[in-house]
Amino acid sequence: MINHNSSVPMYLQISRQLSEAIQQGEYNPGDKLPSESTLCQQYDVSRITVRQALNLLIQQDMAFSVHGKGTFVKPPAINHELNKIISFSRVLQQKGLKGHTCIQSFSPEFQDEAAQSRLGGTVSNLNLIGYATHTPVVYYRSFFPPDIGQRMWQAAKDAEQSGNAFSTYDLYARIGVDMFRVEQSIGAVNADSGLAQVLELPKDKALIVLESVYYAADGSAMEYKLGYYRSDIYSFHLQRQL
């Protein structure tokens, strides 16, 4: 409870109590915090006071809001090394986070000029959503030559059944294909309505885009991938020598 007669503003008292509950593990990363109406009843305060308390948690980088769904505990920042390829599951493990990956869609034939140009012909498309706990943190759009795409889709379905986190990088061993090298570049975009819905973000929120092309030993391109990462959670690190 809070002290309504205290000189400390009520919204600050509520924010501190919620912050302590998060730090003590009563709410885990990705968990939804009580609704505004629930907090109003619990603390006997106005909706404006509750919103001030929740907004303070957001400002302190402890929570984030999803329009129409509520306020959620924010996972800790995820730092991804670019010096070498690291699997999505390994990145989460390094932060002590559990996660999982879901297949959003698969198309055996897909029209995409950029992918067709890089892969040299008809392409298939596999889209995956990677979660840290219950929070979507990355959206992968992968394109393959059709024969590899079918095998990757089957491998993805098998991996999804395990309930673990994975990306297409983890699937190559499952289909018996060796990667030789990868070329990557980093950019940024503002989330359109589709990306905002997938990653549960406000429209126009900034996203990090990692563009990758995977090559086989014979020099042929096996995969063209766009990874859309939540900039409020994800960051990339690269160590360069002088």
Rank of each mutant, 00 (worst) to 15 (best):
Q42H: 15
D31I: 10
H80K: 14
E109R: 15
Y214S: 04
F166P: 06
N55P: 06
G68S: 08
E211A: 10
A216Y: 02
A53P: 12
L199D: 07
M179D: 03
L171K: 08
G68Q: 13
R181L: 10
F110D: 10
L33I: 13
Y229S: 01
V50Y: 01
Y140Q: 03
F106Q: 11
F64R: 08
D204Y: 13
H134W: 07
D192S: 07
A221H: 08
S15E: 08
V73W: 07
T101W: 06
M62T: 02
E36R: 15
T135I: 05
L18H: 13
S6M: 05
Q17C: 01
S117V: 05
R151D: 01
S162F: 03
Q17H: 04
V73L: 05
V198D: 02
S35A: 10
H67Y: 13
S19A: 10
R90L: 08
S65V: 08
R240I: 07
D192N: 14
P146H: 13
R118E: 06
Q59R: 14
I86E: 09
A221I: 03
P136Y: 00
E36K: 14
I2S: 05
Q197V: 00
L210N: 11
T168H: 11
S162Y: 05
L54Q: 12
A165Q: 11
M222F: 10
A221N: 08
G30Y: 07
S193D: 13
Y140W: 04
V213T: 15
S35W: 02
S65W: 03
F106V: 10
F88L: 00
G99S: 09
S15L: 00
V8F: 03
F143Y: 15
I14S: 02
H134S: 15
Y228H: 05
L171E: 04
L54P: 09
N3L: 07
A173M: 09
Y43W: 09
Y172E: 02
L128V: 04
E200N: 12
Y140A: 01
I208M: 10
G99D: 05
S6L: 08
Y172W: 14
Y27L: 00
L199V: 09
S19E: 11
F64K: 07
G120M: 05
L54R: 04
S142N: 15
I233A: 08
S46R: 05
T101S: 11
I186H: 03
S231N: 15
L119Y: 04
V91P: 01
H134K: 14
L33D: 12
P29G: 11
Q93I: 07
V123P: 01
K84M: 03
N125I: 06
D218V: 04
K95Q: 14
Q94A: 12
A132N: 15
T101P: 12
T49G: 02
Y11H: 15
A114T: 15
G99H: 06
L82E: 10
A196H: 02
G68L: 05
M62R: 14
P108Y: 04
P108Q: 02
G219L: 06
L171Q: 08
